[in-house]
Amino acid sequence: MFGMIPFDRRDDNLFDLFDNFEKKFFGNTNASLPAFRTDIRDQGDKFLLEAELPGFQKEDISLELKEGILTIKAEHKENQDQKDDKGNYIRRERRYGSFSRTFDVSGIDENAITAVYNNGILELTLPKLAPVVPQSRQIAIG
């Protein structure tokens, strides 16, 4: 039960003095990295993964499966150029956003994974592999 309770582990020893100073001075840089939210539900014979990717188009999202690791990437680029009649910029704004998350899909039938993107939600169906039942056989005595 106690393993499920989050806690703040403090490693204040002499060897970690400079690492801890950097973390306390600059802040925890990993906490500020953007990530998209996901929900994973076990539906018996499959898992359902829902990833929130609002503002992205279907073409902005890529799914890669390699060596039992599923990577979801979403990248958005936007340029807003306004020029006058001479071709000079009046306003030029650029916006870029990129998100990436990886998931271990061992125990999943990789060939049967399906994905649908609708209204900012990417929904992946991840069918479980059928459990392998060890087979026994009779050995003839000769």
Rank of each mutant, 00 (worst) to 15 (best):
R91F: 11
I108A: 00
L126S: 01
G120Q: 12
D104V: 10
S32T: 10
L129W: 07
N119D: 15
L14M: 13
A112M: 10
F56M: 08
P54V: 03
Y89D: 09
F99G: 05
Y89C: 02
K46A: 03
A115Q: 12
L65T: 06
T29K: 14
E123I: 10
N88V: 05
G27P: 02
K66C: 01
Q138W: 11
Q57H: 07
Y89Q: 05
K23Y: 04
F47W: 01
D85C: 03
D39M: 02
R10W: 10
R9S: 14
D109M: 04
P54H: 04
I69S: 04
N20H: 06
N13Y: 14
N28E: 14
D81E: 13
R91V: 09
L48D: 00
P34K: 09
I69H: 03
N111M: 08
Q43T: 01
P34D: 09
R91I: 08
N20C: 03
T29A: 11
F7I: 11
A112P: 02
L70A: 03
D60L: 01
E52T: 07
D42R: 00
L129P: 05
S100D: 02
F36N: 04
E22L: 10
P34A: 07
G68N: 05
D45Y: 00
I90C: 06
T102F: 06
A115R: 05
A130C: 01
P34E: 08
S32F: 08
A74P: 01
G87H: 10
K58Q: 13
F36P: 00
P34L: 05
P134C: 02
L70S: 02
F18K: 10
H76S: 09
V105T: 11
K73Y: 01
I72A: 00
D39Y: 01
G27M: 04
F56E: 01
V105C: 11
S32I: 12
K77Y: 14
L63C: 06
E50C: 00
I5H: 07
I5G: 02
E123M: 12
G68V: 02
K24G: 04
K23N: 13
A115N: 09
R91G: 03
R95Q: 11
V132W: 06
H76N: 09
A51W: 00
T125F: 03
I40A: 02
F103E: 05
L17N: 05
P134N: 13
A51M: 01
E59T: 09
K128W: 08
F103V: 06
E50M: 01
E64I: 03
S136K: 15
R91K: 15
N88Q: 14
N118L: 14
K23T: 12
P34S: 08
D8Q: 13
D45K: 04
G120F: 10
N111Y: 08
K77T: 12
T38D: 07
L122H: 06
E75I: 07
F56Y: 15
A35Q: 15
E93M: 07
I69K: 13
L65E: 05
N118P: 02
E78K: 14
R10V: 15
E50F: 00
K83S: 09
R92M: 12
Y117G: 04
A130V: 09
G27K: 05
V105L: 06
I113N: 04
N119M: 11
D11W: 09
F47R: 00
I5P: 03
R95D: 12
